[in-house]
Design a protein around this nucleic acid. Sequence first.
RNA 1: GCCGGAGUGGCGGAAUUGGCAGACGCGCGGGAUUCAAAAUCCCGUUAUGGCAACAUAGUGUGGGUUCGAGUCCCACCUCCGGCACCA
Length: 1043
Amino acid sequence: MAGYDFKTIEEKWRTYWQDHGTFRVDNPGEEGFAPEKPKLYVLDMFPYPSGAGLHVGHPEGYTATDIVCRYMRMKGYNVLHPMGYDAFGLPAEQYAVEHGVHPRETTEENIANIERQIKMFGFSYDWSRRLATTDVDYYRWTQWIFLQLFNSYYDPEAAAARPIRQLIDRLLSGELLVDLAGRVVFPEPGEEISGDIFGMTGTHRKFAELDDEEKRAVVDDHRLAYMAEVPVNWCPKLGTVLANEEVTNEGRSERGDHPVYRRSLKQWMLRITAYAERLLADIETVDWPEPIKIMQRNWIGRSDGAEVDFPLESLGTDEWFEERNAGGFPTVEEEEVIRVYTTRPDTLYGTTYMVLAPEHPLVEQITTEPQRNQVRTYVKAAKNKSELDRIADTKEKTGVFTGAYAINPVNRRKIPIWVADYVMMGYGTGAIMAVPAHDERDFAFAMNFDLPITPILKRRDEADARYFVGTGHEESAKIYEAFKHNPDAFSALRGIDFGPVVHESDDNTPFIPNAAHEKFFDLDDSPKLWIFVGPTAHQDAASLAGLSSYGRAVPRCNPSMNEEHEYIHSGPLNGLSPAEGKKKITDDLEAAGMGKGAVNYKLRDWLFSRQRYWGEPFPIVHCETCGTVPLPEDQLPLTLPAMDDFRPDSTDNPEAPPQPPLGKATDWIRTACPNCGRPATRELNTMPQWAGSCWYYLRYLDPKNSEQFVSPDVERYWMNHSKDGGVDLYVGGAEHAVLHLLYSRFWHKVLYDLGHVSTPEPFHKLFNQGMIRSFAYRDDRGVYIGYENIDFRDDGAYHKKTNQKLSESVEKMSKSLKNVVNPDDVIEEYGADTFRLYEMFMGPLEASKPWNTRDVPGAYRFLQRVWRMCLGDEENGIRSLLVDETEMEKGVEKALHKLIKKVAEDIEAMKFNTAIAAMMDFVNTCYKAMAITQCQVIRFLGVLNPFAPHITEEIAEQLGRTESIAYESWPPFDERMIEDETVEVPVQINGKVRSRVTVPAKADDDAVLELVLADRKIAPQVAEKKIVKKIVVPGKLVNLVVK
RNA sequence: GCCGGAGUGGCGGAAUUGGCAGACGCGCGGGAUUCAAAAUCCCGUUAUGGCAACAUAGUGUGGGUUCGAGUCCCACCUCCGGCACCA
């Protein structure tokens, strides 16, 4: 046979698979469907078809899933393995704007190119299911799902989404009431709702008594898709709002590097926060990498605490407290009451001031006249801050006193109310109780503005809270000098906890001593603070040094809380431990009607609109009479209007109103209200890129269905016909750990609640492939040098022209680092099978690892060896190793059985690198034996086929197969063939290997020891000594402990 | 700062989870084949000492547990990823 000509072979087999529909898989109800087989749904994160095409990271995950799919087909599974494109989004639009072409055109070109690249790898996708999020047939259903969200509300009693019609009916019947803030009041579990159970009269209204506009507002406010005025990242230059991840750390747009401003705009929001608890709880049910689960939990950010009411000074009279006591904690904040959220209600006695977020509605109302200008200036500045300023300012705490005071409900003390931007409106209630003695931020703020600091927790074994003292530099120097002359006198001060410590920094930030500071810092560092511990330590130290003044005593900040602590200065809590205190204070607050246990989440509602052209249009019409009206389903799809000029209006003015590109499609905008038929306008925003990727895995199931987004029978089969519901294996990069995966889970749960899908979670098993990076080279000046200009020698990389030695580092692949590897080039030179093999052989799939082009020939050589082993290479006069069955080598047969077992185990554990190593080893074994039979070759090809499908198909054909081996059964192995009769075990003396003995595999411990003691190396070493202990690990090792 | 992950030959990485450290590949050295080269096949390749058998050291650093530690525990260092005033 001729040599290994990968170009011809790979082309041939790709065509074969396509022409024969080898990897098409039928749905239940279709002709070729095989109901008796188990199903497997293996999904790749679909790519964004960028102009740059595929990079080597994409095929890494795709190869891994392809191996699993091909293996599982051989194991007899119905395998669903589709591919598609996430094609909406800003990059396509920006590219189109820059080059003056319609985004649909560039998108289609990019898809064609990336698909050409993907197909070169010979992946076993069912291409008949291909989709793109930009297909009208696809986004029609994205719009349909949006309507599901719009037409639903979250019912807290059912803990599930329900049709909004049900809410309206319950409101109309009077079963549910509306509070003064326009929120529907749902009964507590077990609570009976009647007209007057809500305590004070006049706090609730009947829905039926509202006017039409009010009714609409109440209903719209409970939809899962709703419009709200929210602070957003507004980029006037791009003319659009941006998602947080589209904004750089420097507060600029990722695309184009333009300034981004915080600004309030009316936007579409999705009520993902309603699902926070379920999203959190159900993480436990899926098989995902633990770090990803942790990231999702952190993102959701549940915290348990309490809401507490602080009345303003004017309101907080004894009578008011009594009323409260009787009436209980109201669901809605009363006027003139500041409601805070805290995770540490137990520190209430240490609350010495309050802080409102600049956006807090009470700020304007409570500010006193003398403070008004200052407060207004501050609030305005805080609101207009760009992201950049916000980040830069996090070090320094700023704020302004409002002039107003509130009453601390537990000790009735009057405490000042401040405004500061370290409190954010978006979390909790936008107001906090500040406990500077036990919270780092409050402490920094209190130090800055000289606010009182009261410690309320101390360690049980401590006399009182610890103190430190700040003095000026000169005093520090004097005390230090005094200490050096007479350390013994100072050591008496250490009795309490710490010795004197010198502050190590120059600025005025407060210093928090800990055990690590129990030593003196070098005075040359210009210390400004001395730290002493104990109520009078600072005085004592000053007098020892002969100083009359000793600075100011300040309690330190101690955020820690464990069971070794007890309360002080806390009234009824004094002496309790934190666990006891937390429980008691929450009970007391509830009894007094001053507070209530509460849960908070960091998770925010999802900002769902963008001022862009290249996204899904909202199926929404705005009507003056009827308000926000959804399009009826039969009017879907609402297609994007044809436009020549789809660029957003660009400006430098951060205050300019957004002008979405769709605003220019004047004919398209004007429409009739689906409700009343009067003239109305279409929604001008479009959906964000995440929308399309939220549910693509469902459309793959039934991509051609024009009646439904997916047929229920088909959905149930592919998603819910195995032990665990959902996609059986989902592989992609960890960059989607949070957003895509969280958004998808949210949509899926809504669809589940509404009965459109059968599983609560979309992706049962998730696997993250590691990032492929590559070596980057720099010359002395730090300029990056491309590979084409590098001479690789034994001792390093040199510049071809200047002969300069270059420094090497491993970096993300990027054009600017000149270290991008193009898969096209590699395939051109070595073929797809080699590429696949190399990427899988680089290391563990989940690990980040560097691409090294110089290693690729290793994989290529292996395939060459396989080829020659099976077929020989006449041109080079090399004969194959094929021998007759009668000359079968037992060693090869045994190695083959071991290999089959090993590779199966490794594929199932996604450990492809070691599977390949085992195959290389097997081939080496065959070469040593100089023999392999045809029957062995066929089995070996089966094992190698998932990894290198083209070459294995070709070899099989040349050996006489007449059809594809893709559905060949996975070769069986015999456990008895694998067992060894004898094993070599190492013999250790005192833990060091001194010899090895060969023993029968089934020998018992005594028999093994007998052999060991007779060993010619061991015998002399133990002869003179006493054997203290004998350890025999069967089949592993023997260890003798001697004296 | 907080939360994850990882540090093993010249390089990418193995090591059945506490039992022979360095599988497999790259690179390098040697040999065979060849007029020669490429390709191919075979042998060697952690370091130090020794002709060798062998000895000693060795998995980021320092301690510890254990008959035995790359693997477990404590403290620290470095790199990578994520979050970042979340009350």
